[in-house]
């Protein structure tokens, strides 16, 4: 019964993955015959390619920012929206809304908002006297990566709020009641009950956010295409450009192998630090 699934999966997932590994040992422009170069692509990536190192750095910074802010924000909002009242349900529905939009739409909308000269964000900042913060968001290599990270947080926080609400609602209410009887402050309740009890959910949120942020190709492509001066390039956009505008397929494959390693490493680190076994047992 699993035959159709196995067939499609092997042919279009596992087989390409293996081929990818094979390509990464080759120099290939897509036209002439591929040439076996051993580990050359990897050593070049590691020792000679400053741009790629910068891009890996970008990606790690991007992931860290998105994971930290998105997790903190969604946990905060989830504690606010825990009870099922009309208002909280409405707010959850609103917060969740961006999740259903396509990332291209989100990218294009935010390009409009971020416009430095007439964009809504700067106009609003100036209107409330924060002229200092009216930046050239996407056009300045100092801010572009963070501006995209902010969009990513806007995009997916609502989804994480829902996951957290589902998780937090599992915490027995009498724990809080007992704490209140003991005179525990809101912060103490959070620290001693909510945080430890929500740890499994946090692990899920963090893992999912991490994977999402390594896949943020669409946002970057529709907002900055990696610019200015590669300041917002991520590993996936680099793979795409190396393959489809520079026609270095072998080299791009090597980059994607690096991506796999980085993702696995980050996931493993998270599992270690959060000490939680989620998903696969």
């Amino acid at each position: 019964m699993a035959i159709p699934a196995v067939a499609v999966y092997s042919f279009l997932y596992l087989y390409p993955a293996i081929q990818n590994l094979a390509y990464s040992f080759e120099r290939w422009d897509g036209v002439t015959k591929p040439q076996y170069v051993g580990l050359h692509n990897f050593t070049y990536l590691a020792t000679n390619d400053d741009l790629f190192r910068k891009i890996v750095g970008n990606n790690i910074r991007f992931t860290l920012i998105v994971v930290i802010f998105q997790t903190a924000l969604s946990l905060l909002f989830a504690t606010f929206l825990l009870k099922n009242t009309k208002t909280t349900i409405l707010l959850r529905v609103i917060y969740f809304f961006p999740t259903i939009l396509s990332s291209v739409s989100v990218g294009l909308i935010w390009t409009f908002l971020y416009n430095p000269n007439f964009g809504f964000l700067n106009a609003s900042l100036k209107a409330i006297g924060l002229n200092k913060f009216a930046l050239n968001w996407l056009g300045d290599s100092k801010y572009s990566l963070y501006a995209i990270a902010l969009t990513q947080v806007w995009f997916h926080t609502g989804q994480m709020v829902i996951i957290y609400v589902a998780g937090l609602q599992q915490i027995p209410a009498d724990l809080y009641e007992a704490a209140e009887v003991d005179g525990a402050t809101r912060w103490q309740q959070f620290k001693n009950i909510t945080w430890p009890m929500a740890l499994p959910t946090t692990a899920v949120v963090v893992a999912y956010t991490t994977i999402q942020s390594f896949r943020a190709f669409d946002l970057v492509y529709s907002m900055t295409q990696g610019g200015p001066l590669n300041s917002s390039d991520l590993i996936v956009t680099s793979i795409y450009n190396t393959a489809f505008s520079s026609f270095k397929y072998g080299y791009a494959s090597a980059q994607s192998i690096v991506l796999i390693v980085v993702v696995l490493l980050v996931t493993w680190l998270q599992r270690r630090t959060l000490r939680i076994d989620y998903g696969v047992k």
């Binding site: 081929q19 994607s256 993702v263």
Partner: peptide
């Protein structure tokens, strides 16, 4: 075995396969 096989696909982001898929 089947389960582990498919789990592999969860660990590897689908984006890394763009090049071999394209040529295939």
């Amino acid at each position: 075995v089947l389960f582990i096989l498919f789990s592999l696909g969860l660990a590897i982001p689908g984006q890394v396969n763009i090049i071999p898929i394209y040529h295939l």
